[in-house]
Design a protein around this nucleic acid. Structure first.
Length: 555
RNA sequence: GCGCCCGUAGCUCAGUUGGAUAGAGCGUCGGACUUCUAAUCCGCAGGUCGCAGGUUCGAAUCCUGCCGGGCGCGCCA
């Protein structure tokens, strides 16, 4: 990247001039180079001289003068430098450097924006992991979008990524779920029932029961209560899980691993991890329960692993689960949780440390919640109560592309309001269409040019130096940003920055479109512009691909 | 009470880890289609970046304290 070349050049120049500023003048490890918002401040700009002014004990402009003189001599990349304001060094690159990006994109094609990591890692991203006792709600959709997009971006940044879904198919909730379905089954077949006190009230329970009635008829009525509970639990669980997998698949989220909590209990992993904690004095028995000393590792209090009635807690399974994850040899584990689980982070970190691993091997991304409204009125999202809009409803009504883009537009740090009616009404003015439309327009230009016999020249034939219109320059600058955007999204675990980038790229293209014609202008210019347009197609397509959003050829 | 997140234009949100004149979309108002897709473009209006201090060449951004909102503090999952 050009930025790296500039960093090297500045570092070299600084070490040459540092001697003139006294023996204590040291060359900094990190040099901040940015792209100014306003192009009048150069193609790149750096603030090093102001940062160094203190430690070098002099006026920032003195450093700037010495540095820029050295830079202009040293590097053939730059045209000139200017010193501005309190000591910014604005760097102007040689004319023609922007045009080079078109060739680069053309040569790299779909791999433009894919990076080679300095330290490639094996990363596991675990996300959604909803309880299989009901349909996914809208909040899960957000984590599906964020988790999958983050995985795509980490892959683009040069890492090896595995996606995992942890299925909480064990415990009292499953029993209650089975009982609820069993009750609805009997009810549908005309029996008078007493619905379980804490049972799941949602109408989808009746739907599941109805499907069982349709396929099996009345035969299950003969079973004992316990047999019924067990049977309905398994039947309903399978059905919900299948449903959940197909919803996520419709959303283009494909998991590498579906990990069953139940297996941790049946194969003895939970028991083993509890025993091991006791052996190593990371756990103790009090009031008949087994407690883990999580407070030794920063948690605010100790946590129960095994209840006094002998049953393991969810946390115990989670300790075993994370032990299993660690044993699989990942360099980094990333979990995406909703804000309603953030209090759970310290105890899991403590568990990791108790297991003898570095707590930083687990990174938990806490995402704020989704507030669903309908015409401004809050909609309840609880599975236990009646009304709810499911993730599936949302996909049906709004579509996968718009839903993904919407969830990826916002920082995970802020709660989002999603009005279901608004999403439907405004679906045609959703920002996703702004970006997709840019892609469709690009394709249209290329199609029309071909139809009218205007040939796309090869990248060697094209005279890219003809691309000099301000809107062309701006577009090329935007095109050149993709690799650094990928890097930033990956480093900051911030997929939303990709949507922000694509919007500004689309804006640059739409502006180019109105300023510069491609079809029907003089042959050489048309040729250069066709190459630029094709590069734009490639970058939008690559960027949308990292979001998991389609890039349509026409709209 | 303690912990995490948020507070930026009428509304929904960005803001390149501390930079130069704080930006988009929606909404308002006014312009631009005989020519590659008007799902677009151009312009006007709209701001005490919650409040008060602090740190420094420089703060929406970092530190402290308030105010307001969301979420969490189980032998639930």
């Amino acid at each position: 990247m050009i930025r790296d070349q500039l960093t090297a050049a500045i570092t070299a120049a600084l070490s040459e001039i540092s001697g003139d500023f006294g023996p204590d003048a040291e060359v900094p490890q990190e040099i901040h180079i940015e792209r100014p918002k306003d192009r009048q401040f150069g193609d790149y700009t750096t603030n090093v001289s102001m940062v160094l002014a203190r430690s070098w004990k002099c006026n920032p402009r003195e450093i700037a003068v010495a540095l820029s003189a050295k830079l202009e001599m040293a590097d053939d990349l730059l045209d000139r430098t200017e010193i501005a304001g309190p000591g910014f060094i604005n760097i102007y690159l040689q004319s023609g450097f922007q045009q080079k990006i078109v060739r680069k994109i053309t040569e790299q094609g779909s791999s433009y924006g894919r990076l080679v990591a300095d330290e490639p890692k094996r990363i596991q991203v675990e996300f959604v992991s909803a309880n299989p006792v009901g349909p996914l709600h809208v909040g899960h959709g957000r984590w599906a979008a964020v988790g999958d997009c983050l995985a795509r971006i980490l892959e683009a940044a040069g890492h090896q990524v595995e996606r995992e879904f942890y299925v909480n198919d064990f415990g009292a909730q499953m029993g209650l779920f089975g009982e609820s379905v069993a009750a609805r089954y009997r009810e549908l077949l005309g029996e008078t029932i007493v619905f379980p006190e804490q049972g799941y009230q949602g109408s989808y329970i009746i739907d599941i029961a109805q499907e069982i009635v349709d396929s099996d008829g009345r035969i299950h009525l003969k079973l004992s209560d316990d047999e019924q509970k067990e049977l309905f639990k398994e039947r309903a669980y399978r059905q919900v899980l299948d449903h959940l997998k197909s919803s996520l698949s419709d959303f283009d989220v494909d998991y590498d691993v579906w990990f069953s909590e139940r297996e941790l209990h049946t194969n003895g992993s939970v028991q083993r991890v509890v025993d091991s904690m006791l052996e190593r004095n990371h756990a103790y028995i009090k009031d008949g329960a087994t407690w883990m000393r999580t407070s030794d590792f920063g948690d605010e209090k100790d946590r129960v692993l095994v209840r006094s009635d002998g049953t393991p807690t969810y946390f115990a399974a989670d300790v075993a689960y994370h032990a299993d994850k660690l044993s699989r040899g990942f360099d980094l584990l990333i979990n995406i949780w909703g804000a309603d689980h953030h209090g759970y982070v310290p105890r899991v970190k403590a568990a990791i440390e108790s297991l003898g691993s570095d707590p930083s091997s687990l990174e938990v991304i806490i995402g704020q919640l989704v507030n669903l409204t309908r015409n401004g009125v809050p909609v309840r999202m609880s599975k236990r109560t009646g009304e709810m809009v499911t993730f599936e409803d949302l996909l049906d009504e709004v579509g996968a592309d718009a839903t993904r883009f919407f969830f990826l537009m916002r920082s995970t740090d802020s709660a989002v309001d999603f009005d279901i009616e608004l999403a439907k009404e405004r679906s045609s003015s959703n920002p996703v269409y702004y970006v997709q439309y840019a892609h469709a327009r690009v394709c249209s230009i290329i199609r029309t040019a071909a139809e009218r016999g205007q040939k796309m020249p090869s990248i060697d034939e094209a005279d890219l130096s003809l691309l000099v219109d301000p809107s062309e320059i701006t577009l090329m600058q935007e095109l050149s940003k993709l690799p650094e955007i990928v890097q930033r999204c990956a480093d900051e675990r911030a997929p939303h920055k990709m949507t922000t980038y694509l919007r500004s790229l689309a804006e640059a293209f739409h502006s180019f479109y109105t300023n510069c014609r491609v079809v029907g202008v003089e042959k050489e210019i048309a040729g250069a512009r066709l190459r630029l347009v094709d590069a734009t197609r490639q970058v939008i397509s690559n960027g949308l691909g990292m979001l998991g959003v389609t890039a349509p050829d026409q709209m």
